[in-house]
Computed example of a mutant assay.
Amino acid sequence: MTPDTKKYRHLEIRSLVIQAIRDFFTGNHYLEIETPIRCPCVIPEAQIDPVVSEDQYLQASPELCMKRLLSKGFNKIFQICKCFRKNERGSYHLPELTLLEWYAKDDTYLDLMDQCQGLITFIAERLNRGNQIIYQDKIIRLNRPWQKLTVRKAFDIHADTSLSAALFDGSFDEIMGFKIEPHLGNTSPCFLYNYPATLASLAKLLPNNPQYAQRFEFYMAGIELANGFTELTNPVEQTKRFEIENKIRCSQKKAVAPLPDKFLADLEKMPDAAGIALGVDRLVMIFCNAPSIDDVVTFTPENL
């Protein structure tokens, strides 16, 4: 029996993309690490429901453990791992997904943007794509500089209401999903940056404007690929922010997440750093010109 030709080609590209990721980071002196995917605590987040595994949780991100490693002297680290999101399913969503995360001491979110550019360009060169990627009839040019757009400016350009009004009436996510994101990264990759402070519970705030945080999201072809920020390293402030997230969860009739006490204790020793999570499945979609995330994984949940 011969394998499905299109599926085989997609999985072949997936393998090449993952190998290129490893080569990029090891070539830039990052240490590849592995952390547990099953943990007693997860990040308290209002919008992400943890998956329970007996008396523990399956990680939605390896962020807590990776930042604890930073506090113990690991200065440049990355990992490619499985993560889990409850009730997430769609053309761009899987309940079990593959994430790339990397962290580096003394970096900021501006450094992460440069690293994203370097990584995507490196993969494109490895796949002989030159200076452009074609995705669903969109020609995305990789010639630098890439677009950078503040969240406030994106609302001014693409939305029919202001950022302040969207935050006040709770329509931020809906407007982002339907009005703004489809316009991002269609001709060149795009960094949407300086998120409202209330939407960046683990990020440092802008020193000259604390209403906004040093957080960005990275887009290609209207698809969010990554979320990165300059890390908050103040354990007292971080505890307050986690408690706010739990209050929101409580107001939504959701279970309160236990505070990650060991992480908060280590945070006091964590150096200034920046970190980012990038969706490998979505990135492979882009390089395969595949319309659905189902096309670039071996098995979907429905086929197991």
Rank of each mutant, 00 (worst) to 15 (best):
V52D: 10
T230W: 10
E237I: 05
S201P: 02
P301T: 11
R89V: 13
D173G: 11
Y57Q: 04
P260Q: 02
E217V: 03
A226M: 09
E231F: 08
L149R: 01
Q252K: 15
S53L: 11
V284N: 01
E237M: 10
E96Q: 15
F229G: 01
A257K: 13
K262Q: 14
A203D: 01
G177D: 10
I18A: 09
I157M: 12
E88H: 02
C190E: 03
F172D: 00
P50M: 05
R249A: 03
N143M: 13
M113W: 09
I244T: 13
H158D: 11
L206W: 00
L100T: 05
I21V: 11
G177E: 14
E32S: 05
K138N: 05
S15E: 11
W102P: 00
I244M: 15
I43C: 03
F178Y: 12
C116Y: 11
G222D: 10
I80C: 15
T300Y: 08
S188Q: 14
N234G: 08
V151M: 12
L127S: 00
I175D: 01
P210C: 06
C83F: 10
Q214D: 05
N87A: 09
T239F: 12
R9Q: 14
R68S: 06
Q214K: 09
Q47Y: 13
M1A: 11
C41Y: 12
R38M: 15
D160M: 12
N234D: 15
S251R: 14
L205R: 03
A290Q: 03
I21T: 02
H93P: 05
F155P: 01
A274G: 06
M1I: 12
K76E: 14
A154R: 04
A274E: 06
L206H: 00
N128T: 10
L69A: 12
T26N: 08
T2Q: 15
F74Q: 10
R85P: 00
Q47G: 09
A273H: 11
V42N: 00
K6H: 05
K148G: 06
D294P: 06
N303P: 07
F25N: 02
R215D: 01
N289F: 06
A274T: 10
T239R: 05
L94W: 08
K253V: 14
E302D: 15
Q59Y: 12
K76Y: 14
V52P: 14
H93W: 14
L192M: 00
F24C: 02
I48E: 01
